[in-house]
Amino acid sequence: MGANALAGKVALVTGGSRGIGRGIAERLGRDGAVVAVAYARDQAAADEVVTQIRQDGGRAFALRAELGVRGDAAALWAAFDAEITRHAPDNGVDIIVNNAGIGRSANLAALTEEEFDEVFAVNVRAPFFIVQHGLTRLRDGGRIINISSGAARLAMPDAIAYGSTKGALDTFTLNLAKELGSRGITANSVAPGIVDTDVNAGWLRGNAEAEAHAASLAALGRVGRPEDIADIVAFLASDDARWVTGRVIDATGGAGL
């Protein structure tokens, strides 16, 4: 893949203001895509990502999109439509990256109905309707990339609801691949393991014992970095991955082997 592998393409990245989402947005921008950086609340962080993409020679804009509430997908696309024509010829999109997600650290006995509903609303319902509402905008030959988790294939009772949402997301991916294949649209999931992001900073960074344990879980012997995931997403977004669809790409560094 060259530096302009995605030239002329438009990408939407949810949860694009930090962590893995930021890494993905910046990588797609470097590859030539116009990137819509969707964020929930932290406009300053989203603007920082947009600035970085532009400094790297790319094009990007921020979209506020709170997920997990009724009407979230329609509101996201309305904001997208209002902004995209300033950056591209029409309101079409080529790459949808459903990255935004939340976790709930609670086991079967402790999880409340409210927490269950919230995590499924953000992690499953929002991607479903983002794609549904996006189908009229998604061009033939497009890409749908859902950010899943190694928790979908590894038993993690203390994150039972989170893992369940990612299993649902992988099933969603499989069905999208079948339904949209006739249009040349691919759908794939990327499943990270432990990644050094702000979400994990509280227990991981500055704690040598925790980092060593996390690293030991991966066959490759280290903690993941946002760019590890972003590079896989960039491949799936490119024409090089045109013959890959309906797959879950393990991006855990070999956890649980």
Rank of each mutant, 00 (worst) to 15 (best):
A45L: 04
G21C: 15
G15S: 14
I20D: 15
R41K: 07
V50Q: 01
G57N: 01
A44I: 00
G23F: 14
L63Y: 10
Q43N: 00
R59M: 05
A46I: 07
E26C: 10
G16S: 10
V49Q: 08
V34Y: 00
G29T: 09
V37F: 13
G16H: 10
V35A: 11
A25V: 03
G16M: 12
R22K: 15
E48T: 09
A62W: 06
R54L: 02
I24A: 13
G21A: 13
Q52N: 04
G23D: 12
I53F: 06
E26S: 12
G57H: 02
A40C: 05
G15D: 15
Y39Q: 04
A60K: 01
G29W: 06
R54D: 01
V49R: 09
G19S: 12
G58L: 02
R30D: 13
G16I: 12
S17P: 08
A25R: 06
D47E: 11
R18S: 15
A36S: 07
T51D: 11
I20E: 14
D31F: 00
Q52C: 00
Q52E: 09
G32Q: 00
G29Y: 04
R30F: 00
D56C: 00
I20Q: 15
Q55P: 00
V34T: 12
A36E: 02
T51E: 14
G58D: 01
A46Y: 04
A40G: 11
G15M: 14
F61S: 09
A36H: 07
R22C: 08
V37L: 11
R54K: 11
T51I: 01
A33M: 01
E26I: 13
A36L: 08
A45W: 01
I53R: 04
V37Y: 11
G58A: 06
E48L: 02
A45M: 04
Q52V: 05
R27Q: 14
Y39H: 05
E48S: 14
A38W: 03
D47Q: 09
A60W: 01
A45P: 02
I20P: 13
Q55A: 10
I53L: 01
A25W: 02
G57L: 04
A25N: 10
A36M: 07
G15Y: 15
R18G: 08
A44C: 00
G16R: 09
G15F: 14
G57I: 04
E26N: 04
F61Q: 04
A33R: 01
V50D: 02
G29L: 10
